[in-house]
Design a protein around this nucleic acid. Structure first.
Length: 562
RNA sequence: UCGGGUAUCGUCUAACGGUAGGACGCCAGAUUCUGAUUCUGGUUGUCGAGGUUCGAAUCCUUGUACCCGAGCCA
């Protein structure tokens, strides 16, 4: 493929890296990392970071590590570690032999803490959490020094050792850096370095009862891994001076931290806390519910990893907060699926059609191409017979002028088959509901024959009733009604902003017999892209998830006019 | 109010003192045995006010708006 200049625009992080490469700042090395905390599942926002970090490494012939920032044993679990690794791999990235855990650095971090104490740059404080908060001051007023701030170094050392030995309860003692209680940057007001946490760690077990804070771990972990460009989100901008202070005081290798704006997407939320809430309160069926913006949810929904990578490429990288239109993600998904997925026919809201002039017992095998976008995709046979299903939406008894589909007296083509004409409408005597259409077909109009045959306005998908395979079909819509459910002011209550129609289950849909035991992704002609559900399908009883609808001009017209 | 950031089409994002460009969306049309795809064409933008300059989205002054920050969370 040709890359023209307009597409090849570089973002500010690439500018920085290219400048560093030019000046030899890191000896021409580019080494990044993706550092998730294993306390939840990865979502599309993480995908942006993953693509950025792994993408940069590959673009500049560098490396990218996977590192779990696991400094809080009370929130982290092995289940998340596994899920995260699976998601990163599925997205298409490989950390090779560079899998790390911050917890592997606990010994080194402890030693760093001792070093700071010995330099007189850290002290053990016995203020309560509440007192520490009071002493910290406010955004506009300076804080006050802790009464324990000037403890002798030897005493600090002894106390810190006793913390490690388990002599103090949680909340009783902490180790703090001695920086500046009057700093405008609250992160520098003697931040806590170590706290007592009598919890079992998913990796280190019960070896430790004190754990380093993230702030005392992240920068040093980057340093130990010889990271060159430590890419993180905007909220850590204020922490950079602190990380640099640690690195400086410890006299160790210094990576360059660069902050970028995290992804926001409309009609969904990308907050781990709130996603956890959706799962915990049962508003969705687990982390991989196809409505979830998690990578596992999108995988189950049928989003190809290529599409997600393309999306991450297109949204760009910048420092200004922004919200991406969900339509862009869907565009990327459709673009990939249009190229790659076989076309098949399914009828999800059936209406019976009887072809009156078609022989009772006749069955014809018609040829259907699998993918018009892919000539090498081949074709398959589909059975045609006297009694068919078409989509209820494709018939109107009293249609508006722009309706191209079937109506009394009108003709349409059945895809891959014949032109039919609606002769009569059969209704339920009591309800007046249309229950059946009596039609005739024109044998001269078979697909593939006489090319210059009559033109009709519409082409419908259909299924032979006798051959149709029953299937469950799940139609998904936005999980939230509001465009910005993340806004606490607009949506103080998550529950009430949920879209009650986010999942519509069609228990008795029908698909081609071809799909009885299918796996993978398909385009249901004129309906959308669907995939076989990985969990609930069973042999002979397929379940399909709608990945995304097709663009639908007719739906737009009907919506506009009423 | 203190510290740190950010402002370019409806939404994202380029342009690094020299023609404001691309993508998505939207609108119109062509083609189509998917109202899909594809293809054409169109729409709309530099936060405000001053200044420097032959020339400003870009530099300066000033204002405004928005985001982040007071966890022993990450």
């Amino acid at each position: 493929m040709q890359i023209d200049d307009s597409e090849a625009s570089t973002h500010f992080i690439q500018h920085i890296i290219e400048e560093d490469l030019k000046t030899g700042k890191y000896d021409g090395r580019v080494h990044t990392r993706f550092p998730p905390e294993p306390n939840g599942y990865l979502h599309i926002g993480h995908a942006k970071s993953i693509c950025l970090n792994f993408g940069l490494a590959s673009q500049y012939s560098g490396k990218c590590n996977l590192r779990f920032d696991d400094t809080n044993p009370s929130k982290e679990e092995e289940e998340y570690v596994k899920a995260i690794m699976e998601d990163v791999r599925w997205l298409g990235f490989d950390w090779e032999d560079r899998l790390y855990y911050s917890s592997e650095n606990f010994d080194q971090l402890y030693e760093y803490a001792v070093r700071l104490i010995e330099k007189g740059k850290a002290y053990v404080d016995e203020l309560s959490p509440e007192q520490i908060r009071e002493y910290r001051g406010t955004l506009t007023e300076p804080g006050r020094d802790s009464p324990h701030r000037d403890r002798p170094m030897e005493e600090n050392l002894g106390l810190f050792k006793r913390m490690r030995a388990g002599e103090f309860a949680e909340g009783e003692m902490v180790l703090r850096a001695k920086i500046d209680m009057a700093s405008g940057n609250l992160n520098l007001r003697d931040p806590v370095l170590y706290r007592v946490l009598k919890a079992t760690h998913h990796r280190t077990g019960d070896k430790w009862c004190i754990y380093p804070m993230y702030d005392f771990t992240h920068g040093q972990s980057d340093s130990l891994e010889r990271i060159t460009h430590s890419i993180c989100t905007l909220e850590f901008e204020d922490h950079r001076p602190l990380y640099d202070w640690f690195l400086e005081e410890l006299g160790i290798y210094r990576p360059q931290q660069i902050e970028f704006a995290r992804l926001n997407l409309n009609y969904t939320i990308l907050s781990k806390r709130k996603l956890l809430q959706l799962v915990a309160e049962g508003h969705v069926n687990g982390w991989n519910d196809p409505r979830m913006p998690t990578l596992s949810g999108m995988r189950r929904r049928g989003y190809p990893p290529e599409a997600i990578r393309d999306f991450c490429e297109r949204i760009g990288v910048a420092k200004s907060n922004s919200t991406i239109d969900f339509a862009l993600l869907e565009h990327c998904v459709r673009e990939d699926l249009n190229r790659t997925s076989p076309r098949v026919m399914a009828v999800i809201r059936p209406l019976k059609v009887v072809i009156e002039n078609y022989p009772e017992d006749q069955v014809e095998e018609l040829i259907a191409e699998n993918n018009p976008q892919d000539p090498s995709g081949g074709s398959r046979k589909i059975p045609f017979s006297r009694v068919l299903y078409i989509e209820r939406d494709d018939f109107m008894e009293d249609p508006p002028k722009k309706f191209f589909r079937l109506a009394p007296g009108r003709e349409v083509r059945l895809k891959h088959a014949y032109i039919i004409k609606c002769e009569r409408v059969v209704k339920d005597e009591n309800t007046g509901e249309v229950v059946e259409l009596r039609c005739t077909y024109d044998p001269e109009t078979k697909s593939g024959s006489s090319q210059e045959g009559r033109k009709v306005k519409g082409t419908l998908h259909w299924l032979s009733v006798a051959h149709a395979q029953r299937a469950e079909v799940r139609l998904y819509n936005h999980l939230f009604l509001k465009e910005n459910p993340a806004d606490e002011k607009e949506c103080p209550d998550l529950k009430s902003s949920l879209n009650p129609d986010s999942l519509e289950t069609i228990g008795n849909g029908f698909v081609e017999p071809y799909l009885k035991d299918a796996v993978g992704r398909f385009q249901f002609l004129r309906l959308g892209y669907f995939c076989v559900d990985s969990e609930d399908s069973s042999p002979g009883a397929p379940v399909f998830n709608r990945t995304v609808t097709l663009r639908d001009t007719w739906a737009k017209i009907t919506k506009k006019s009423g």
